[in-house]
Design a protein around this nucleic acid. Structure first.
Lengths: 341, 341
DNA sequence: CTGAAAGCGCTTACAG
DNA sequence: CTGAAAGCGCTTACAG
């Protein structure tokens, strides 16, 4: 049950613990003969250094905490791939933390970051109570924090970030609907607290506005970033008189729920109703009809965010935050058409 | 950047570090007066104990490692909910580890388990090279390991597990197809290495067999547990002459890919082809048509697995492993019908 | 109730 | 190249 310690290895190899340590960490500082002896002892005991003690002693864990809203969100598959790749290349390990909708407050996350001695944090989730508190508790310590995917909250402005231009992407999505000839365009958005959807909402409003259309009361509905929430939202949208002929959903998860609900209501998509999503998660391509959406360079976001974070860990936080904007892409499939008549 | 230590708090409060420690961990062992003084000092310094040092000193991390195949797999949303709930109730924190298809060998996982001083591990993924090595390296230490969701590999038989009866569930799913009148039933399964799908395959074979039907060459195709893999698999299935009129997919992810591919091939589901999935992940209900599938008590699996693991951590591993079987449930929706003609 | 002291497993100047 | 020794931050018998 309890692991072998360095002492036992030292005893078995007939050397000091310092030498064992060197063999493990700086083999070049040790004679071949000693090294062989020690390696032998390591093998027979099955010794594996106590990371806790190592990190404790070194004052450094070489670990990065990745905070995401939920394991089980398909969007993060690709982001994680980029994260793993970059972390591996830079020699860090990743600790995944879920915030699971307000299960964890900013204070808890912050305290955990410090108390677990993480070298830095990649924040892929935005909780509303996040901003100021994280700032106040940890900003003085200048803990390296990079924000990914999410737009940066004003209170988090001092941290660097890596994401697409959510406003521009939302404008593009909405404009695509407008260009098809739609004039009544609804939107299913996320909780008011969600920064992510706030920017997408901004883009939507801007596009509608620039088209000289007034956003009607009831065109923007909260879909709670979930399938079920989006289904209710879609019902509300369809109850409007006149109802929108096209709907922009702030993410694909909601688009899939909305799409289903529209079909349940007897509408043909895209003939009777056009739907556009956001994210291009892997289920978007195989939905019926395949979903037109905004593609995010998810893997690149993860990768770039880690590189940036590592650079901050190694060189300290830059004087001013830097926002790295990666290109998005409109993915045209079959859930959008011109309005009827 | 570097956190405040207990020393500084002690100095500020004018007490010993031992007293500060007591205030934090056993407040009842300290006078009210001292406690107030210390708490004040803690507040002004923003002290938060170094978990590393704590765990190191205590020889115990109170952490459980949860190993799952991939972040972004929607099935685990609900499992994680159960895990979190139980872990919180029992006072453990969770460390999530992804294995991401062979990115990590059994040895690495095992070494990590020991070196990170985890109190136990919940294994929700099965990699083929897992069994024996984990066993050989760590079994002597009797590290508490519980296997969840997955069927237990023979080499892992000494560990307890919590899962549904995959064989019975697969029989039920296949039987449902048979009962509708299908006689040519194909299956899209996972990699040969996947234990999970091996059991489901077993159930499928048993049901077909018991119906007096011979499983034809080419009826069982590897869909690699992915959407794309399942799409290829479905194409292969449809190339059969005569082609199956119904397909059992070893999980919903593949069912969704297969469903899409069937529709692309011009088939009507369920009229021309019936499809049944496994897992009842959240996208199953909103697929078109809604997917008939096997529902797993995902949250309960997570919860029970953690309780079992905690009990092993606290009371030691039981002499013989215990397998806890939770009830599954056939969820009838609209992707299955009687065969044509 | 409180403090002085030992020690968890490791690494790293410092001598030799 | 190698070893003796100090010390990372904390907790916990042991005295008092």
């Amino acid at each position: 049950m309890n692991a072998v310690s360095i002492k036992e290895v030292a005893r078995l190899a007939g050397v000091s613990t310092a030498t064992v340590s060197r063999c493990v960490n700086n083999p070049e500082k040790v004679t071949e003969k000693t090294r062989v002896k020690v390696q032998q002892a390591i093998r027979t005991t099955g010794y594996s250094p106590n990371t806790l003690a190592q990190s404790f002693r070194r004052g450094r864990t070489n670990m990065i905490m990745v905070v995401l809203p939920s394991v089980g969100d398909p969007f993060f598959s690709r982001v994680m791939r980029g994260i793993r790749k970059a972390a591996k290349a830079k020699g860090y390990s990743i600790v995944i933390e879920e915030t699971q909708l307000n299960t964890m407050t900013a204070d808890e996350i912050g305290a955990m970051l410090v108390s677990k001695q993480m070298d830095g944090m990649l924040l892929l989730a935005s909780l509303s109570p996040f901003g100021t508190e994280i700032l106040s508790t940890h900003s003085q310590r200048r803990l390296p924090i990079v924000v990914g995917c999410e737009t940066v909250a004003p209170e988090l402005a001092e941290f660097s970030s890596v994401h697409i231009d959510n406003v521009a992407a939302a404008i593009e999505a909405t404009q695509f609907l407008l260009d098809k000839g739609h004039s009544r365009v609804g939107m299913i958005t996320g909780q008011a607290a969600s920064l992510l959807t706030k920017d997408r909402e901004l883009g939507y409003r801007k596009a509608i506005d620039d088209a000289g259309i007034e956003v009607q009361q009831g065109w923007i509905v909260n879909g709670e970033l979930s399938i079920d929430g989006a289904r209710s939202a879609m019902r509300a949208l369809l109850d409007q008189r006149p109802a929108p002929t096209a709907v922009f959903c702030a993410n694909d998860e909601m688009a899939i729920g909305a799409l289903h609900e529209a079909k349940l209501a007897g509408l043909l998509v895209p003939d009777d109703l056009s739907i556009i999503g956001f994210d291009d998660m892997r289920y978007a391509e195989v939905s019926d009809p395949p979903l037109t959406t905004i593609g995010q360079p998810a893997e690149a976001i993860g990768e770039r965010a880690i590189y940036r974070l590592c650079s901050e860990i190694e060189n300290g936080r830059p004087a001013s935050s830097q926002n790295e904007i990666l290109p998005h892409q409109l993915v045209v499939r079959q859930s959008v058409a011109a309005p009827r008549s």
